[in-house]
Computed example of a mutant assay.
Amino acid sequence: MMIARMIATVMGVGYLRPAPGTWGSLVALPWAWLLHVIGGLPLLVIGIIAAFFKGWWATSAMTKGSDDHDPSEIVVDELVGQWIALLPLSIASWRMGIDITVMWPGWIAAFVLFRLFDIWKPWIIGWADRRGDPLGVMLDDVFAGLFAAIGVVILAGVAHAI
């Protein structure tokens, strides 16, 4: 249970107040940067996949026998979703050989858009959240991350077209 708690709360970040989900998303940023710097896009993708499956397991372990399917201290889902939101930056950096930190406006956009979609929960994001199970806990943030990533690409297109 201790390992599950460490994974699910992202080493205790989920216990920070207020807004543990925002703290989880915030701590995901330097870790995404580190993964990208060490291994580029491939390592970030591997990190997303590994964190998703470990997070699903840890969420299952932490919520087993509980009526609360998504306690606020579980923030591994935010980490996964935030990393997905950052994928367009990692892709651009990887393909074009650009230092990923140069795209700092994209980092801000990815963070803000992910938090907005994660809180607002439109369409399929809300559907995943309403599943009421550990997979839904993870999936709503995966979908929020995908929506945010699309938003990052759209904003980059607009910014670079001007």
Rank of each mutant, 00 (worst) to 15 (best):
M1F: 02
I3Y: 15
I3W: 15
A4L: 12
A8Y: 06
V10H: 11
G14M: 04
G14P: 07
G14T: 11
G14Q: 09
Y15C: 02
L16K: 13
L16F: 15
R17L: 10
P18H: 12
P18N: 13
G21D: 03
G24M: 02
S25E: 06
A28H: 13
L29Y: 05
W31Y: 12
A32Q: 10
W33A: 12
L35N: 13
L35Q: 14
V37E: 14
V37M: 12
I38Y: 07
P42V: 12
V45H: 08
V45C: 13
G47D: 01
I48D: 07
I48V: 15
I49H: 04
A51D: 02
A51P: 01
A51Q: 05
F53T: 11
G55W: 02
W56D: 00
A58W: 07
A58C: 04
A58H: 10
T59Q: 05
T63E: 05
G65R: 08
G65V: 07
S66F: 06
D67Y: 01
D68L: 09
D68C: 08
D68P: 02
D68S: 12
H69K: 10
H69T: 10
D70G: 00
D70R: 14
S72G: 10
I74C: 00
I74Q: 03
L79T: 14
L79V: 15
W83D: 03
L89E: 04
S90M: 04
I91T: 03
I91L: 00
A92E: 05
A92N: 05
S93H: 07
W94G: 10
W94F: 14
M96H: 13
M96T: 11
G97L: 08
I98S: 04
D99Y: 04
T101I: 10
T101S: 13
T101L: 07
V102H: 10
V102G: 06
M103T: 03
M103F: 09
M103V: 07
W104M: 08
W104V: 10
P105V: 08
P105L: 03
I108D: 03
A109Y: 00
A109G: 03
F111V: 05
F111M: 09
V112N: 10
F114P: 03
F117Q: 07
F117V: 13
I119D: 00
W120H: 13
W120M: 12
K121C: 01
K121I: 04
K121R: 11
W123F: 08
I125V: 15
G126Q: 06
W127P: 03
A128Y: 01
D129A: 01
R130W: 00
R131P: 00
G132D: 03
D133Q: 09
P134E: 10
V137S: 06
M138F: 05
L139T: 09
L139I: 11
D140W: 03
D140C: 04
V142R: 15
F143K: 06
A144E: 02
L146F: 15
F147K: 09
A148K: 14
A148H: 13
A148Q: 12
I150P: 07
I150L: 15
V152R: 12
V153C: 05
I154G: 04
A156I: 14
A156V: 11
A156K: 13
G157P: 02
V158Q: 09
V158T: 09
A159M: 08
A159N: 03
A159D: 00
A161S: 10
I162K: 10
